[in-house]
Amino acid sequence: MIWRYSWRDSIPLSVTLFQLAINIWLAATWETRTLLQNLLFIPLCLFLFWYNGLVASHNFVHTPWFKLDSLNRFYLAINSINIGLPQAYYRHEHLVHHRFVNDRPDQYGQVQDPTSIFANGKNGQPENVISYCFLGLFRADLLESFRKIGQTGEAPQLYLELAACFLALIGYLILSWQYFLFLFLPTFYLGWVLEHLENYYEHFGGVPENKYANSTSYYASLYNVLFCNEGYHQEHHLRPGVHWTKRHQLRREFRKDFNKVDRVILRFPPALGFLDHRRIVQEQQATQPCAKAI
């Protein structure tokens, strides 16, 4: 067996491989279709980008899928092409997020979590969701993150992933500059907008100072089956090293602690959190059933 935790990791793996394959195919065959026909692929490519960041890239950070480190490192390089940035950068930012979990500004107005929804808010309130999502990509301090990654001894992996991104970029431009301009760039930008939207409502309404209520959760079964139990986000923050197939068990484990606090349980997936963004209920009041691990 090649799997470190579960063969079910082949599900997000298959999605990311399909994402890479369809992007190469679109670039290579761009000239065989009209511009309108090509643009019809944007929703699919955007969904794959969003799913990658939400499920595949995210889970891989915490529980690398393969027993062999060489396979893990190869996958990281390949998937860096999909998300348009080195996976090492994604990992670095995400682990900092887990360490400080959407913290509020200190006395100097600074936050430790670069993805905190409070970082650019006013008067101690979260930032507006629109500016958070659409400006988030431009606020990334890549050079500083690369410097810190290098200090951890992961510079060789970072260089490998940067090389993969660069070579893919050149390859796409050679195959079709129109593909790069009209599909790759819009998908890259809007994909990261969706990633920021997801993160926003995975934490909006949460209490950063309370580890049992600093995030939100969404317990609908279908969503958690299709998205590898990503709805158990509060549970995930409590035990980030637990494989996604076991996250539903954490809800039962922490039920007593959840019952002691008011926390956000969403009625819609986080990407649609704006439809019901302040549903604050206690755990014992929640009526939605636990999703079963697939």
Rank of each mutant, 00 (worst) to 15 (best):
M1F: 09
W3A: 00
Y5D: 11
S6P: 10
W7G: 10
R8Y: 12
R8S: 08
D9G: 03
P12H: 08
L17S: 03
I22C: 08
N23W: 07
N23L: 07
I24K: 00
L26W: 02
E31C: 02
T34A: 05
L36N: 08
L39A: 11
L39R: 13
F41T: 11
P43H: 11
P43M: 09
F49E: 09
W50C: 04
Y51N: 04
N52C: 14
G53A: 09
L54T: 12
L54F: 14
V55W: 01
S57A: 15
T63M: 12
P64Y: 00
K67A: 00
L68R: 15
S70L: 00
S70Y: 01
G84P: 10
Y90V: 02
E93T: 10
R99K: 14
N102S: 09
Q110C: 09
Q110E: 13
Q110M: 10
Q112T: 01
D113T: 02
P114F: 10
I117N: 11
I117P: 11
F118R: 05
N120M: 12
G121T: 06
P126W: 03
E127D: 11
N128G: 14
S131I: 14
C133N: 02
C133H: 01
F134S: 05
L135Q: 14
G136K: 09
D141G: 09
L143W: 11
L143Y: 10
S145I: 12
F146N: 06
R147F: 14
I149Y: 07
Q151Y: 09
T152N: 06
E154L: 10
E154D: 15
E154V: 02
Q157G: 07
L158T: 01
L158K: 02
L160C: 04
L160Q: 03
E161Y: 01
L162C: 14
A163W: 01
C165K: 09
C165N: 15
G171T: 07
L175Y: 06
Y179M: 05
F184V: 07
F184T: 06
P186H: 11
P186D: 10
Y189V: 15
G191S: 07
G191H: 06
W192F: 15
V193W: 05
L194C: 10
L197D: 00
E198D: 14
Y201M: 02
E202S: 14
F204E: 02
G205M: 04
G206Y: 03
E209N: 10
K211R: 15
K211Y: 10
Y212S: 05
Y212A: 05
A213H: 07
N214D: 14
S215I: 02
Y219E: 12
Y219N: 13
A220V: 07
S221F: 04
N224W: 07
L226Q: 12
C228T: 12
C228V: 13
E230R: 09
G231T: 02
G231K: 04
Y232Q: 04
H237G: 05
H237C: 06
L238V: 08
L238S: 00
R239L: 01
R239P: 00
P240H: 06
V242D: 08
V242H: 08
R247C: 11
L250G: 05
R255P: 00
N259M: 08
D262V: 03
V264L: 01
R267E: 13
F268M: 08
F268H: 12
A271I: 11
G273I: 01
L275N: 08
L275C: 08
R279W: 09
T287Q: 07
Q288A: 15
P289V: 09
C290M: 13
A293M: 06
